[in-house]
Design a protein around this nucleic acid. Structure first.
Length: 255
DNA sequence: GTTGAGCGTT
C-alpha cells in the first residue's frame, strides 16, 4: 500500500479529502502517509504530478476515513514543517460540486473559521515567465469558470451586434486565449522603444478640463479590446472596403 | 537544475 493514486479514486463518498499545500516538490505520498496516518485512518493519498516530467506539483490530497480524524489532522498537521517546508493542510474540494456532493461529508471547513491565518505569506503572485509549463495546469478548466464566461457572452452579444458587419475575422483569434507568446514577442521588440504608460486605458487622463461625457462612448466597450468599428482603430488598410463598399473607389469615404 | 499559488488521478 505504498503506491497511492494508482487505482483511481476510491470510494470518496465515504472519505474525506484533505488538501496539503506548501509541501516540497520532493515530498511524496509515502512521506505523507506515515505522517497523516498517525492522526487517523488514511484511505488514500494522491499527489498530482506533472504528465511530462512526473514531478510533484507541490500539493497532495490525503483522504481520511472519518471527518473527525481528518479535522484533527488538519489541526495537527496544518503548519507542520515537512522536509523543511511548512505544509498547509485543509479540507479539499472535489471539483465544483464538492460542496454539493454531500452536505457535511466532503465540505466541512467550518469549525476552522477565523483561525486560518497561519503563515500564508502574501508572496508575489507573479511567477517567472519562462515557467509557462506550470501555467498550463493552473489554467485548468475551472468548472465554475464557465459561469463567468457565460455572462460575458451575454455582453458580447451586444458587441457582436455592432461589429456584425465584419465578423469572423482573424481578429477574433486575439482577445482570448492569453496571448502570452504574442505578448512576449511584442514586449521584446517594443519594451524599450514603446512608452511605459500608453497602452493602459486607465492612464487615459482627460486632456481637457471638461469632464468626460457621460454618454457618447462607453468606457467598457473600449476597455474590452480597444477595437471599435466606428473608430479609427481599424487597420489603415482598406479592409473595411470589402464590407462597406464593394467598390474600391469609395475607400476614402468613411464617415 | 530552477519554481511556490493552488484543489486531484480512473
Amino acid at each position: 500500500m505504498s503506491h497511492f493514486g494508482r487505482s483511481g479514486p476510491p470510494d470518496i463518498s465515504d472519505t474525506y479529502s484533505l488538501l496539503i499545500l506548501n509541501i516540497t516538490f520532493r515530498t511524496t505520498a509515502d512521506d505523507l502517509f506515515p505522517l497523516f496516518d498517525k492522526y487517523g485512518k488514511v484511505v488514500d493519498i494522491f499527489i498530482p504530478k506533472d504528465r511530462r516530467t512526473g514531478d510533484s506539483r507541490g500539493f497532495a490530497f490525503v483522504r481520511y476515513k472519518y471527518a473527525d480524524e481528518a479535522q484533527k489532522a488538519v489541526d495537527r498537521l496544518d503548519g507542520r514543517v515537512v522536509d523543511g517546508r511548512e505544509i498547509t493542510v485543509q479540507f479539499a474540494k472535489y471539483g465544483p460540486n464538492a460542496e454539493r456532493i454531500h452536505k457535511g461529508r466532503i465540505v466541512e471547513s467550518a469549525p476552522r473559521s477565523g483561525h486560518r491565518s497561519r503563515s500564508r505569506s502574501p508572496r508575489r503572485r507573479h511567477r517567472d515567465d519562462h515557467y509557462r509549463d506550470r501555467d498550463y495546469r493552473r489554467s485548468r478548466s475551472r468548472s465554475h469558470d464557465r459561469y463567468e464566461r457565460d455572462r460575458y457572452r451575454g455582453k458580447d452579444r451586444d458587441s457582436r451586434r455592432r461589429s456584425r458587419s465584419r465578423s469572423a475575422s482573424p481578429d477574433y483569434s486575439k482577445g482570448r486565449g492569453r496571448g502570452r507568446y504574442d505578448d512576449d514577442r511584442r514586449s521584446v521588440s517594443r519594451s524599450i522603444s514603446a512608452s511605459p504608460a500608453r497602452r493602459s486605458p486607465s492612464t487615459r487622463k482627460s486632456p481637457s478640463p471638461r469632464k468626460s461625457p457621460p454618454r457618447g462612448e462607453s468606457p467598457d466597450r473600449r476597455s474590452r479590446d480597444g477595437r471599435s468599428p466606428s473608430r479609427r482603430s481599424v487597420s489603415p488598410r482598406g479592409r473595411l472596403a470589402d464590407s462597406r463598399s464593394p467598390s474600391p473607389q469609395n475607400s476614402d469615404v468613411d464617415e
